[in-house]
Simulated assay, not measured.
Amino acid sequence: METWPPPACVIDILSGEYSIYYKGEMSKATKLECEGLEIAAIWEAEHIIDRIMGDDRWHSDPLK
């Protein structure tokens, strides 16, 4: 059985448009459809370590 990570929300910082990334595919979405999903991001190494350690004070939720 193949396993996939759960869907993630992608927010285009230039246009403000929302998409959902799932199983290697992007599909257009609304802000409401993205609520509750993790925001897909490219993480710098120090942010990955912070996140693993439970320190996310540098992170802001763009859906709020």
Rank of each mutant, 00 (worst) to 15 (best):
S15N: 07
Y18N: 01
P62K: 03
K64R: 04
K28D: 13
E17T: 12
E17F: 11
P62E: 01
H47C: 09
W58Q: 10
L63V: 03
E44M: 10
C34T: 06
I20Y: 04
E2H: 06
S19H: 09
I52T: 04
P7N: 05
G24T: 09
E2L: 13
D56G: 09
L32S: 15
P6N: 11
S15H: 05
D61V: 08
G36K: 00
P6T: 12
C9N: 01
P6L: 10
M1D: 05
K64D: 15
D50A: 07
H47Y: 12
H59G: 10
D55F: 02
K23H: 11
G36W: 01
R57L: 02
P7A: 13
I39C: 07
E35I: 14
E2A: 11
I20C: 03
D50K: 09
I49H: 06
L63M: 12
C34W: 02
E2P: 08
A41L: 05
K31Y: 05
H47P: 05
I48D: 12
Y21S: 02
C34F: 03
C34Y: 00
S60Y: 10
Y22F: 15
K28F: 06
G36S: 07
Y21V: 06
E38W: 08
L14W: 07
G54S: 01
D56H: 06
D12Q: 05
H47K: 10
W43L: 14
Y18W: 11
E38A: 15
K31T: 10
H59L: 13
D12T: 05
E35H: 12
S19F: 04
G36L: 01
P7R: 02
S15Y: 05
W4G: 08
I13D: 13
W4P: 02
P62V: 00
T3L: 14
H47S: 10
